[in-house]
C-alpha cells in the first residue's frame, strides 16, 4: 500500500457521516489509515469498521498478516485484518469477549488447522516466509512460534519431562547432559528453577497454578522459538503469580517477539509496547500503548478502555 493510497483512504474516512459526533479525535497525517476492508455496520455505530486506525504497520516487521479472514463455518470470525509485528516487541491484543483475539493468535501458528470448521484466507508471513504456503510444515512452524495457553496445561508427566518434551521430539539434544542443560536453562529463564530444582521428577500437575503456567512457559522456550503467543496467560492466576509472569515477559521480550491476548488493561499497559484493539472480528485500532490508553482515536476503543463496553 503506497502512501498516496493511505492518505486517500484516510480522506474517505473523514467524510463519513456521523463519525464526528462519536468523539473520535482526529489526528492529522498518515497516523490514521485505512485497512482497505469491507464496510461493516455495527448496531448504533455508523462507522466504516473495515478500517484500522493507527500504526498497524511497523518498522522491521517480522510477522506480517495481510487481509486475513477466518470463517468458522458461516461465522466470519476475523474480518480482513492486516497487522505487522516486529521481532523486538510485545504486542497486546485486547477487545471484548468473542471479538476474535484468540482466533487471530491461533492463525499465527496455524493452531486453527486443528479445528475442522475453520477456514483461513489472506496471507501471513513469518520472517518473509508464507506460513500458509504449500511447502511449509505446520509442525515445524509451531516449533518456531510457541504458544502459552489461558489455562496452564502441563502434561501429566514429571516437571523434567514436561520441559524436555519439546527438545526430545525435535531432537535438540544429542545426549542426556545436553538435555539436562536445556531443561535447566529453560526453567531458569522461566523463573521456576529455584522452586523446583529438587523435585524435577515430581509430576508437573502437582505445582500451583502460577508455577504450572511458568512451567508451560519454560516448556515453550525450551524449543527455542522465535515468537511466543500467549492467550490470556494470567487469567487463571492470582496477582502475585501474575506479576511474576509479567516480569518474565519483560525479560523474554529481549529475545522473542511476544503476542499476548489479555483482558486486563493494566496488564496490557504494563507489558506491551503496542496494543491492538479488536472488535467483532475487526482490527479497529493499533497504536503505541501509551497513546492508546491516553488518547484513543476510535470511539469503540475509547469505550472499551474506559469500561463502557466489554
Amino acid at each position: 500500500m503506497t502512501m498516496a493510497e493511505m492518505t486517500e483512504a484516510n480522506g474517505s474516512e473523514e467524510q463519513l457521516p456521523g463519525n464526528a459526533g462519536l468523539g473520535v479525535t482526529k489526528m492529522p497525517g498518515p497516523k490514521q489509515t485505512a485497512n482497505g476492508g469491507s464496510a461493516v455496520a455495527v448496531a448504533g455505530q455508523h462507522i466504516e469498521l473495515g478500517q484500522t486506525i493507527g500504526d498497524f504497520r511497523c518498522e522491521n516487521p517480522y510477522i506480517v498478516a495481510e487481509n486475513v479472514n477466518v470463517h468458522y463455518g458461516d461465522n466470519h470470525a476475523i474480518k480482513n485484518v492486516t497487522l505487522e509485528i516486529s521481532k523486538q516487541e510485545v504486542i497486546a491484543l485486547i477487545g471484548p469477549s468473542g471479538c476474535g483475539k484468540s482466533t487471530f493468535l491461533r492463525c499465527l501458528n496455524r493452531m486453527n488447522d486443528t479445528i475442522e470448521s475453520a477456514r483461513i484466507t489472506g496471507k501471513i508471513t513469518l520472517g518473509g516466509q508464507d506460513i500458509y504456503g504449500k511447502d511449509l510444515d505446520p509442525v515445524a512452524l509451531r516449533a518456531r512460534v510457541g504458544m502459552v495457553f489461558q489455562k496452564p496445561n502441563p502434561f501429566p508427566k514429571s516437571i523434567y519431562d514436561n520441559v524436555a518434551y519439546g527438545p526430545r521430539i525435535h531432537g535438540l539434544a544429542t545426549d542426556r547432559a545436553e538435555l539436562d542443560d536445556i531443561v535447566h536453562t529453560s526453567l531458569e529463564r522461566a523463573g521456576l528453577l529455584k522452586e523446583v530444582k529438587d523435585r524435577l521428577e515430581e509430576p508437573g500437575t502437582g505445582l500451583s497454578g502460577g508455577q504450572q503456567q511458568r512451567l508451560c512457559i519454560a516448556r515453550t522456550i525450551a524449543v527455542n522459538p522465535e515468537v511466543i503467543l500467549m492467550d490470556e496467560p494470567c487469567s487463571a492466576l492470582d496477582p502475585i503469580a501474575t506479576a511474576r509472569i509479567e516480569d518474565l515477559m519483560d525479560e523474554l521480550s529481549q529475545d522473542y517477539a511476544i503476542v499476548i491476548v489479555t483482558h486486563s488493561m493494566q496488564q496490557a499497559a504494563r507489558v506491551s509496547k503496542r496494543v491492538a484493539y479488536f472488535h467483532l472480528g475487526l482490527l479497529v485500532e493499533v497504536d503505541e500503548t501509551d497513546r492508546i490508553f491516553t488518547n484513543p482515536q476510535h470511539k469503540l476503543t475509547e469505550d472499551y478502555i474506559t469500561g463502557r463496553i466489554g
Binding site: 501458528n109 493452531m111 486443528t114 509442525v139 515445524a140 512452524l141 509451531r142 516449533a143 518456531r144 510457541g146 504458544m147 495457553f149 489455562k151 496445561n153 502441563p154 502434561f155 501429566p156 518434551y165 519439546g166 521430539i169 525435535h170 508451560c216 516448556r219 515453550t220 524449543v223
Partner: peptide
C-alpha cells in the same frame, strides 16, 4: 488443552 499444548510445541 493437553492436545493443544502438545501440538503447540510442534508435535506431529
Amino acid at each position: 488443552a493437553m492436545r493443544d499444548g502438545a501440538l503447540g510445541l510442534g508435535s506431529t
